[in-house]
């Protein structure tokens, strides 16, 4: 087995901005193979976006990052400021939730994409523009030549997200990071974008980390799902296994709360309580205060992720 394309080992991220340090990520380990799509699934504050942004070192100054991250053989934590700038876009690129905020409103889409290409490769403006045109055709933007000359505010949300994807693929990256790219879109547009990402991923052999809060979206795009809770991965495995046979009580609760699985029941199964305060994490399992199957040991032992390889792993003392 070749080395994984993305190898995150015991990553912890702490923000030191407020009065108390916020422990957003607490020891996450995750491997993504070449050509594999992993969905990071979690609710707000679970650390899924923070984990992903660490791979591009996008955190503000004063953030404490420990652990090791390797992407395509490069150690991300060791890269110099110049190297990380070369790394972003060329090796790993990112698609955001709000393309309107991620694109510069005063340049046309064509200008922005050609600039990105010319920043990373020694090719002329004309060649770069032609590549941009091909990319726009690839992401199926109608009348691409005209669209390259438009400004971001002239396009609808779905078209803009397609342009954003074109831009992310401009320099043939090996890894695509997608941060809830379809959350702000309508359902009929969301499914188009999901299918587009899946298609491009297969064609380019991309490794993708797809951050989402919607287990249905994860089921549509991902090969594997990693479920996060309070800055830790609590369960990880093949998408079908997670959905059909969730092991961790939190994953079970999340699936129970899904309305489409409620069937003829007139009430939803809910997880009582609320996620823990990230400035004051419980000593043991972070889910223990809300868990219906809690045991005495859960209060003082952080359960490790157990299980090997394809069969999936779970961080719960019931399976230890």
């Amino acid at each position: 087995m070749a080395d994984p394309m993305i190898d995150i080992d015991n990553l912890s991220v702490t923000f030191n901005r407020g009065r108390k340090p916020v422990k957003a990520v607490n020891g996450v380990s995750l491997k993504v193979k070449a050509g594999e799509v992993v969905a990071l699934l979690g609710e707000s504050g679970s650390g899924k976006s923070v984990t992903m942004r660490s791979l591009l070192r996008l955190h503000p100054k004063g953030t404490t990052i420990t652990g090791r991250m390797r992407v395509a053989g490069q150690d991300v934590t060791e890269l110099s400021a110049r190297q990380i700038a070369d790394f972003r876009g060329a090796v790993t690129s990112m698609v955001f939730q709000e393309p309107r905020l991620a694109l510069d409103p005063v340049y046309t889409l064509g200008q922005q994409i050609t600039e990105t290409i010319m920043r990373h490769e020694r090719i002329g403006r004309q060649a770069a523009f032609e590549r941009a045109l091909k990319l726009f055709e690839k992401v199926r933007i109608p009348s691409p030549e005209r669209r390259l000359k438009t400004y971001p505010h002239e396009m609808s949300g779905g078209m803009l997200q397609r342009a954003m994807i074109a831009m992310a693929l401009a320099c043939n990256p090996k890894v695509l990071l997608a941060d809830e790219p379809t959350t702000a879109l309508d359902a009929t547009v969301q499914i188009q974008i999901l299918l587009l990402i899946r298609e491009l991923q297969a064609e380019y052999g991309l490794s993708v980390i797809f951050v989402t809060h919607d287990i249905g979206v994860a089921a549509e795009v991902a090969d594997r799902i990693a479920v996060m809770y309070a800055g830790r991965i609590v369960e990880e495995g093949a998408v079908a296994d997670i959905i059909r046979d969730p092991k961790h009580p939190y994953t079970q609760g999340l699936l129970g709360a899904r309305v489409e699985l409620a069937g003829e029941r007139d009430r939803l199964v809910t997880i009582p309580g609320a996620p823990p305060d990230l400035t004051d994490m419980p000593k043991g399992c972070a889910f223990a205060p809300r868990c219906v199957r809690v045991m005495d040991v859960c209060g003082n032992t952080v359960p490790p992720l157990i299980g090997k390889g394809e069969a999936g792993q779970v961080a719960c003392l019931h399976y230890a």
């Binding site: 779905g158 359902a187 188009q192």
Partner: peptide, 27 residues
């Protein structure tokens, strides 16, 4: 019908293969 078909399926064995609608909602 298109709106219904656009909802993500909860079964990875029955993934959507063709988008039910193309393009964005019109202005």
């Amino acid at each position: 019908a298109a709106l219904l078909a656009s909802m993500p399926k909860m079964d990875p064995g029955e993934r959507t293969l063709v988008p039910p609608l193309s393009g964005d909602p019109p202005n």
